[in-house]
């Protein structure tokens, strides 16, 4: 990767962080009237995976979808307008934060039913194979999703038919307030995929470039037509499960655990690498932040001013 490419990748991750922080700041204003599941702390996963994808590749996601959407190139204005419930939103105000979509960017949809989009991603890969398209379909999901039967059914089918699908499990150690150890026996999640005959690897969040590099092989494998691949990436959600604040005070995880993950902030580590390499100086950092803040400010202004959907939009949407 050239310095410029590395800086660009970092900027994309910083942008996701700043956008979600802005959402957290604005949420108490009572105008974003839908659940939000922030991925602050987990952003590098989304950016590292998507840095290896093409626009024509597909991404499917879950409830914690903002990062996936933005990393795949989803439109920011339409995302914020959606969270504000506006007609200009990416679903027109029908889906909210948990149902983002931007087909033009290859972000095919997010749904909050755990594991819900895993078979859908496999189905898209099935089409790619049937039509001999060299495209990749990606399913993002959390550590809880492998507990659903539908994950295993989809993984088996994908392996059986050698489908071009990349399974990305973001293992942040919790499902809501329930730790992994209370839901799964001691085992490796990626071992489950291996048992389905899918090449699998366990990756530690590390820095962005390291992660992006490690994912390159997995995406290349999938694109080459050799079948699916599975990656389990360890990561950590900083904010509360759902909502803008923090929830370390309620007692399901310790402050020490939180602080220890936070002190290893992958975004900050990535910045440190760039600083050391002389690619990111204070002036560049300021310039990046200013640019991102301006973009967010404009998108927020746009979203707040945008009109709400009307009765007519509502009636038009019904199908059967």
């Amino acid at each position: 990767m050239t310095d410029k490419e590395r800086l660009d990748l970092y900027a994309r991750t910083l942008r996701v962080r700043k956008i979600e922080e802005a959402i957290a700041d604005l949420y108490p204003g009572q105008e974003m009237r839908c659940p939000v599941h922030l991925s602050i702390g987990q952003e590098v996963t989304a950016v590292a995976v998507c840095s290896n994808l093409k626009k024509s590749d597909y991404v499917f996601s879950n409830h914690r979808c903002h990062g996936h959407y933005l990393a795949k190139g989803g439109d920011l204005k339409r995302m914020l307008a959606e969270i504000y419930g506006k007609a200009a939103g990416c679903t027109g105000g029908f889906g909210g934060s948990m149902h983002l979509v931007d087909e033009a960017a290859g972000f095919m949809g997010a749904v909050p039913i755990v594991a819900g989009t895993i078979p859908i991603a496999v189905g898209a890969a099935f089409k790619f194979k049937m039509r001999k398209e060299k495209r990749v379909s990606v399913a993002f999901f959390g550590d809880a999703a492998v507990e659903e039967g539908v994950f295993h059914e989809a993984a088996n089918f994908a392996a059986l038919h050698k489908l071009p699908v990349l399974f990305v499990c973001e293992n942040n150690l919790y499902a809501v307030y329930t730790p992994l150890r209370e839901r799964q026996p001691e085992q490796q999640i990626c071992g489950l995929a291996r048992a389905h005959g899918i090449p699998s690897s366990q990756l530690h969040e590390g820095d962005l470039f390291d992660l992006s590099g490690k994912l390159r092989g997995a995406v290349a494998h999938v694109r080459s037509g050799k079948g699916p691949a599975f990656v389990e990436i360890f990561t950590y959600r900083w904010r509360e499960h759902c909502g803008p604040g923090y929830d370390n005070n309620i007692g399901y995880r310790t402050c020490e655990e939180f602080e220890s993950w936070k002190s290893r902030d992958p975004l900050e580590r990535t910045a440190a690498i760039l600083r050391k390499a002389g690619v990111l100086d204070a002036e560049t950092e300021q310039r990046l932040e200013k640019k991102i803040a301006a973009e967010i400010g404009e998108a927020v202004k746009f979203s707040k001013a945008a009109p709400f959907p009307t009765r007519k939009d509502y009636d038009k949407r019904a199908y059967a």
Partner: peptide
């Protein structure tokens, strides 16, 4: 119809 999310709807 399915449930819309916008408060306006």
């Amino acid at each position: 119809v399915p449930t819309p999310t916008s408060p306006a709807l």
